[in-house]
């Protein structure tokens, strides 16, 4: 992996790549951006269809508590993997279980947990580190390119590959069960199992993307490209590929912008995603995708 980074940094030093890639962390960041963009985009189409936007935010917030738990059990600050992935997965699957069992709406369950995990997370971070280290919390909430190490990148590549394979296998099934679970059952789909599998994959993808995008901004990258694609897509296939394109453009240009100007990567990615979204609004009438026409019985 290190020789790969050296190859790109050497290219930058020789003038074949922009000077910002002389730094290994920028090369790592670009690799992460090229992976996170398409994967979050692809999953974003399902997140929007299944109305899981706030669920995504809750998993992001839970990462703060996850990091604190990792530190509590002696994991190093640069790699609290067990605490982070373990806690976020438990919270995500627990929310799904409660939503399916309790007579409470999905929004209410998410709202309760969202506030809890953020509050408990900050409290635990202070208790565990014996100080209020604002930079540590900032890195989790807004992403931190400099702290993205080789292990993070390898984990991101492995998780993204699993997500792409599993996502492709269950894509149609998860879409169908979001329309109507009983109808999906008549087609041999097991809606509850599909839901748990998708939630688990979504959670690990979100957690793996946090160092690039940040806990508070992962929701935006999951939803805004899909919302932009929704503005101009005329069918589901266009919706999927346009979302991936918008998401990738956002992560790559956002990263480049943060290399040129002194702005946080997560924030610049979100800014680019927002510009793309507003551009689609202006394109909408030009592409003839106006209001949905009401048919006749």
């Amino acid at each position: 992996m290190s020789s790969l980074f050296e190859f790109f940094t050497d290219l930058a030093k020789a003038g074949y790549l922009p000077a910002m890639f002389e730094h290994a962390f920028m090369v790592r960041g670009m690799m992460a951006a090229l992976i996170v963009g398409p994967v979050l985009g692809g999953m974003g189409t399902v997140v929007v269809t299944r109305k899981l936007a706030f669920f995504t935010q809750t998993v992001g917030n839970a990462s703060l508590t996850g990091v604190a738990i990792g530190l509590l059990f002696g994991e190093p600050i640069e790699g609290t993997y067990a605490g982070l992935y373990g806690f976020c997965l438990i919270i995500a699957l627990l929310m799904t279980y409660v939503k399916n069992r309790a007579r409470v709406s999905n929004d209410t369950v998410i709202g309760v947990v969202l506030a809890q995990v953020l509050g408990i997370g900050i409290l635990m971070m202070v208790l565990v580190t014996k100080q209020f280290n604002v930079h540590q919390i900032e890195a989790i909430l807004f992403g931190s390119l400099i702290t993205l190490n080789n292990n993070d990148l390898i984990l991101l590549i492995i998780i993204s590959m699993i997500a792409m394979v599993v996502g492709a296998i269950i894509f149609n099934r998860t879409m169908l069960s979001s329309f109507n679970p009983i109808m999906a059952k008549t087609r041999g789909v097991r809606p509850v199992l599909i839901e748990y599998v998708f939630i688990a994959v979504l959670t690990v993808v979100i957690v793996a993307s946090l160092k690039l995008v940040g806990a508070l901004l992962v929701l935006v990258l999951m939803v805004v490209p899909a919302a932009g694609a929704q503005n101009i897509a005329k069918n589901l296939v266009q919706f999927f590929w346009l979302t991936i394109a918008f998401s990738t453009v956002s992560t790559v240009i956002g990263l480049l912008a943060s290399g040129v100007w002194p702005i946080p990567t997560g924030a610049s990615i979100v800014l680019v995603a927002s510009i793309v979204f507003y551009s689609t609004l202006t394109l909408k009438p030009l592409l003839g995708k106006g209001e949905i026409q009401q048919g006749q019985s």
Binding site: N172, F179, N180, V237, Q238, F239, F240
Partner: peptide
Amino acid sequence: LEFDHTLPITVGDFFSIMLRNKPIF
């Protein structure tokens, strides 16, 4: 059907996701 009515999903898409396992994209 419990879905967002503004989503760009055609009747043909609906049948595709129902009748095939190969991802529609």
